[in-house]
């Protein structure tokens, strides 16, 4: 917690107009200036509702990466794989401003007792927001260390009560040609999936923010999933639909190149990508011409928590 000493010239807090009152006033004023057009009011209300969805009370957690420095925020927000906005890693930061993240709904359907559509604000306030610093390992052999803000996906799953037949969870990302580039050659919408136990795992985070702020558009705003023991592409962005299904769902990169990207895609230094080794990774957490190349850890360093889920599986076959 930050304790600030007040200087004498400062206005006592009792005299400061409460922010909400001021914002309401400001909104009213703007609305009047717009001639009270209905559209103007609706837009102002949307802006106000969106502005209220701020991450303020973050619950600290034990999820830390003590042996690696955190990636600078600007770095994490300027180097993204988000193919909906282009194929270069600098593209999403350039183009994702067209993504409209509010209003936003997430439809939860399939083999559940209580299917429903969550309005974004509702989802946002479902649980207290936790901050978790996770290793983030891209399948392209680079990695970052990022503080994500969210709560376990399991909290959402429990609410909709999956039926016993539900064995997998499929996530579908936004597909909107007006807001996204959607390059030719990739089947849209982006689809990812997890086995039920993976989705229910306490590490799997329904993520709304990073670095204490709501997600930047290029990071997959307004809501995504982070699965820290898998390669980055298994953590889908800008989710609009969560589907509970009986059979392994089709997933985008696996469909495009099944020999390169397995359904599980757990971080595994012993199983090479056909075109490069996965034994090492370029750690992107400092601005330098010579980034550290460090050994990749089994399950990205989360073996103690997740390895048991894959006991008895041949991780070379089910990579």
């Amino acid at each position: 917690m930050l304790l600030l000493t007040r200087r004498e010239t400062e206005i006592p807090s009792s005299e400061i107009t409460p922010k909400a009152t001021y914002e309401a006033f400001e909104l009213n004023r703007r609305q009047l200036m717009k001639g009270l057009s209905a559209a103007g009011v609706a837009m102002a209300l949307t802006q106000k509702a969106r502005a209220e969805l701020k991450i303020d009370d973050l619950v600290a957690t034990q999820y830390m990466v003590p042996d690696r420095a955190t990636t600078p925020e600007q770095m994490a927000k300027s180097y993204n794989n988000f193919y909906e906005f282009g194929e270069e890693k600098s593209d999403p930061a350039k183009h994702a401003h067209t993504l409209v993240t509010y209003p936003w709904n997430v439809k939860v359907e399939g083999l559940v007792a209580k299917p429903r559509t969550f309005e974004f604000g509702e989802l946002f306030h479902l649980q207290p927001m936790q901050q978790r610093v996770y290793r983030f390992r891209c399948v392209e052999a680079w990695s970052m260390v990022i503080p994500w803000d969210g709560f376990p996906l399991s909290e959402l799953i429990k609410l909709v009560e999956p039926l016993p037949k539900a064995k997998f969870v499929q996530f579908l990302s936004l597909e909107n040609r007006k807001e996204e580039i959607l390059p030719f050659g990739i089947p849209w919408p982006y689809s990812e999936g997890l086995r039920m136990d993976e989705a229910m795992h306490p590490l799997t985070l329904l993520t709304f923010g990073s670095y204490g702020e709501t997600l930047a558009n290029q990071q997959g705003a307004p809501v995504r999933v982070i699965v820290p023991w898998k390669y980055g592409f298994k953590s889908p962005k800008s989710i609009v639909k969560i589907k509970f299904v009986e059979h392994m769902p089709p997933t985008t990169w696996n469909e495009l190149a099944p020999n390169e990207y397995g359904f599980y895609s757990n971080v595994n230094p012993q199983v090479d990508h056909p075109r490069w080794s996965q034994a090492h990774e370029r750690l992107l957490n400092a601005y330098t011409l010579f980034p550290k190349v460090v050994p990749t850890l089994m399950f990205n360093g989360y073996s103690d928590q997740v390895a048991s889920m894959y006991a008895g599986m041949n991780l070379r076959k089910d990579f």
């Binding site: 770095m75 994490a76 300027s78 180097y79 890693k89 680079w142 370029r282 992107l284 601005y287 330098t288 011409l289 980034p291």
Partner: peptide
């Protein structure tokens, strides 16, 4: 390299 814009990138090696 000299004006720092190279190192200001997330992944200059790439």
């Amino acid at each position: 390299y000299r004006n720092g814009s190279l190192v200001a990138q997330a992944d200059p090696v790439n």
